[in-house]
């Protein structure tokens, strides 16, 4: 420290006790409110943290082990990961999972948007009934909703027997069930109700006077939609996309029921590792890889759309 600084320094030191005394009171006030909040939140937070973080940590640890019969060899190894990255089967299943899930997400958002738009802007009475009607199926048995498509698309299913009964075809159509398209269709049906809510909320939030302002400044309905409604509802669209893409990548019930051999997804393989293949460490490594890739894709997507939206203006 040089001499000239000391004057300023000492003046700082003089004022310091006062300011820190004040800030401490302020900090205490804030922290006491925060403290109350944390106290109230702690049971929920602890249960959730414990039952998510601990299992995930264990899964990560296990992915570096290896399976020996029904026991685990706890020596550290990267073998599970190198196997995953080398195996063409894994890559193929991963790409198919991402592809099916992306197609389903895209279809879901596209078909849900107009529905959400309709309820947000054109339903004026009994909105609540419409919202409940739209979202009701989502809450009911996932398994049964998937199973119903097996009934519809099956070899002796509703469509085939219906078409034969009408005399339109002689032989049952075989391309309906047990392929990736059936998986996409089933997943789209299962998740459509879920996509509506975030989109609806973002549309409902748009101040109607903004739409009137766009009209007033010369935009017809289409231009108004493209320039105001769509950009302002993008947060909802992005949320819906992520809310559907992430869970559907990991779905294994749908491919197992309606996918057939060509419609199997990565999650089926993960499930098999904990079942008939009986290689938990291998399955853990697969699960972690899947999570990481999906997470990266979701984050990249969010960043990209944000970037794109900013640049449009």
């Amino acid at each position: 420290m040089n001499e000239p600084v000391t004057a300023a320094q000492s003046s700082i030191e003089k004022t310091r006790p006062v300011s820190s005394w004040r800030s401490r009171i302020r900090a205490f006030y804030h922290s006491s409110e925060a403290f109350k909040g944390y106290t109230l939140l702690s049971p929920t937070m602890l249960v959730m943290l414990f039952s998510m973080c601990v299992p995930f940590a264990m899964m990560v640890v296990m992915s570096f082990w290896s399976q020996v019969g029904y026991e685990f060899d706890t020596d550290f190894t990267l073998a599970n990961y190198s196997k995953v990255t080398e195996g063409a089967v894994y890559t193929q299943l991963l790409i198919r999972s991402l592809w099916i899930s992306a197609a389903c997400t895209f279809a879901t958002v596209i078909i849900s948007y107009p529905m959400a738009y309709y309820v947000a802007f054109h339903v004026h009475r009994r909105k609540m009934i419409w919202i409940i009607l739209m979202t009701l199926p989502f809450w009911t048995s996932y398994l049964l909703r998937i199973f119903t498509w097996k009934v519809i698309l099956g070899f002796n299913g509703v469509i085939n027997s219906g078409l034969i009964g009408l005399g339109l075809i002689d032989e049952p159509l075989e391309f309906l069930l047990y392929n990736p398209n059936a998986v996409v269709l089933t997943l789209t049906h299962a998740w459509a109700a879920f996509a509506i809510l975030p989109i609806y909320v973002s549309l409902e939030k748009i101040d109607r006077s903004l739409l009137e302002a766009a009209t007033d400044l010369g935009d017809g309905p289409v231009a108004r939609f493209m320039r105001v409604t769509l950009p302002l509802s993008l947060p909802g669209v992005i949320a819906a996309t992520v809310l559907i893409f992430v869970p559907t990548v990991g779905d294994y019930v749908t491919p197992a029921l309606v996918g057939g051999p060509d419609g199997l997804m990565l999650a089926n393989l993960i499930q098999a590792h904990f079942g008939i293949i009986n290689n938990w460490p291998g399955g853990s490594a697969l699960a972690i890889m899947m999570m990481a890739i999906v997470g990266i894709i979701a984050m990249a997507y969010i960043a990209l759309t944000r970037f794109a939206v900013r640049n449009i203006e």
């Binding site: 302002a213 007033d216 939206v309």
Partner: peptide, 11 residues
């Protein structure tokens, strides 16, 4: 029109 709440486009 100048709207009551101004209706400035937030985006």
């Amino acid at each position: 029109m100048v709207f009551q709440n101004y209706a400035i486009f937030p985006h």
